[in-house]
């Protein structure tokens, strides 16, 4: 049994201009769009059907959420910088930016934790109202996505980084793919924030 060479792992296929991983991640993100789309759709149905719908600000903590928005946007920038540094061969600076991204993601989760625990402290649970139910579901699912991003990025900062020495091209592709996922997580939050907190 010899080594199996799967084509277009390193270099893009000529007619599509894409590597396998690049196409794969976009398809995955397409399915994620449908996942969050269904939940947003649920939000609209619940809101339209409700006799009264609370203003997010009256229940939720807008300053904390604004802080989280800033954190997540910054982490998106550090992520794309991590990729750009790799593109110009600055591996050390790449690592710095990637580490910063992970740090910011943890910051996001910590703020989220503070938010959640205050809610629980005030006995605001998903069972209280459909507004809180959709709030916890959407932010919870988004939080899981953040966690997933942390796992992936930590892998590329630690054991996964070895590949830079052996196959730099492929490693860069991986960072790009991880970045695409991370920006998508940011993108979802950009919509969650006004929908849940401001409206």
């Amino acid at each position: 049994m010899s080594a199996l060479e799967i084509p277009y792992v390193y270099t893009p296929r000529e007619d599509t201009g894409l590597t396998n991983a690049k196409l794969g991640i976009w398809l995955f993100l397409a399915s994620e769009v449908m996942l969050f789309g269904a939940l947003f759709s649920t939000y609209i149905v619940l809101r339209v059907g409700a006799p009264v719908w609370p203003r997010g600000a009256s229940i939720l903590n807008v300053p904390l959420a604004t802080l989280n928005t800033v954190i997540l946007i910054s982490s998106s920038v550090t992520m794309v910088m991590a990729w750009a540094e790799l593109a110009r061969g600055q591996f050390k600076r790449h690592k710095l930016y990637l580490a910063l991204t992970i740090l910011l993601s943890f910051g996001f989760l910590i703020v989220k934790y503070v938010e959640y625990s205050t809610k629980f402290h005030h006995h605001l649970f998903p069972s209280k109202s459909t507004f809180l139910a959709i709030y916890f579901t959407l932010t919870g699912l988004h939080g899981l996505h953040v966690l997933g991003g942390i796992v992936v990025n930590t892998y590329f900062l630690g054991p996964g980084a070895k590949m830079w020495k052996t196959e730099p091209q492929r490693f860069m592709g991986r960072i790009e793919v991880a970045g695409l996922y991370w920006h998508f997580v940011d993108l979802v939050w950009i919509f969650l924030f006004p929908v849940l907190y401001l409206l």
Partner: peptide, 25 residues
């Protein structure tokens, strides 16, 4: 690349379909 635009266009079309649901409601 064009292919990605295509895949996303398809997704957007179905996303709109999904949003049709609340309109129906």
């Amino acid at each position: 690349k064009k292919l990605i635009y295509g895949a996303l266009a398809l997704t957007v079309a179905f996303f709109i379909g999904l949003m049709f649901l609340p309109v129906g409601q």
